[in-house]
């Protein structure tokens, strides 16, 4: 936390970030040499922006490290799919293992980063991303709870607001929880938030000032250290 940080310093873009720009930013923030699991949906976009020199190893929970890009044409092999059941490829140095080993990799804290989508994230990093709680919804959890509790860092990618304009960063989640206090960072179209036991700080904003952001988000926001400081 830097006392001289101003709202001006935090704004790094004059407009909100699109999905691809956000994915590019997440990719850039992943430390070289990391082992990473990218969740289904928006987080999958991150793989498009990982650079070879980052030497990132991707894990897929259905039993593989060293997953390559989506398979096309002759590369498609029904025995080689990702957690979203999309055909993928293997990179040199890939390995396969059974499901219990795959989740031991996760639960055992061996993954550096997991990137997930979310319905809501609380001020202290609780995550809700598996179930709307609607009475007629068929519940399906998959690996969501395992991913949320296992990785050293859990990054969330989402739009800040719902279609109805409600903030997805909330004081306490109203949707059923996926994990408690697990999210460390939230990438949204309007800002990057750092979450933890001490509440929420803002690393940078896109197309709004910290004050304008605070008007949208119902939890107290602190200015984090500006980018590059």
């Amino acid at each position: 936390m830097s006392p001289q940080t101003t709202s001006q310093d935090l704004q790094t873009s004059d407009k909100p970030l699109g999905r691809d720009d956000l994915a590019r930013m997440v990719a850039k923030d992943i430390a070289a040499g990391s082992f990473v699991n990218l969740g289904i949906g928006q987080p999958t976009l991150v793989s498009n922006y990982l650079l070879p020199e980052q030497n990132i190893t991707l894990h897929t929970e259905n039993g593989m490290l060293g997953m390559g890009p989506e398979a096309v044409g002759d590369e498609i092999d029904g025995d080689l799919i990702n957690a979203g059941k999309i055909p993928v490829t293997e990179l040199p140095g890939a390995s396969y293992f059974h499901h219990a080993d795959s989740f031991a990799i996760m639960r055992g804290g061996h993954l550096d980063i997991c990137v997930l989508g979310a319905f809501q994230v609380s001020a202290t990093g609780d995550l809700a991303n598996w179930h709307t709680g609607a009475p007629d919804a068929i519940p399906a959890v998959g690996g969501a709870m395992d991913l949320a509790t296992g990785a050293k860092d859990v990054f969330v990618m989402m739009t800040l607001l719902t279609r109805d304009g409600a903030s997805k960063i909330v004081e306490a989640c109203t949707y059923p929880l996926t994990g408690i206090g697990c999210v460390t960072r939230v990438y949204t179209d309007k800002a990057v938030f750092l979450t933890g036991p001490d509440g929420v700080s803002v690393r940078e904003t896109f197309g709004c000032t910290l004050e304008e952001l605070q008007d949208l988000v119902p939890v107290p926001l602190k200015a984090g250290p500006a980018v590059g400081l």
């Binding site: 219990a100 795959s102 989740f103 639960r107 519940p139 998959g142 690996g143 709870m145 395992d146």
Partner: peptide, 13 residues
């Protein structure tokens, strides 16, 4: 339906 998180399902097996 007994719904089990995937890693718990694998480890229980």
């Amino acid at each position: 339906l007994e719904l089990v998180p995937q890693g718990n399902l694998a480890e229980r097996i």
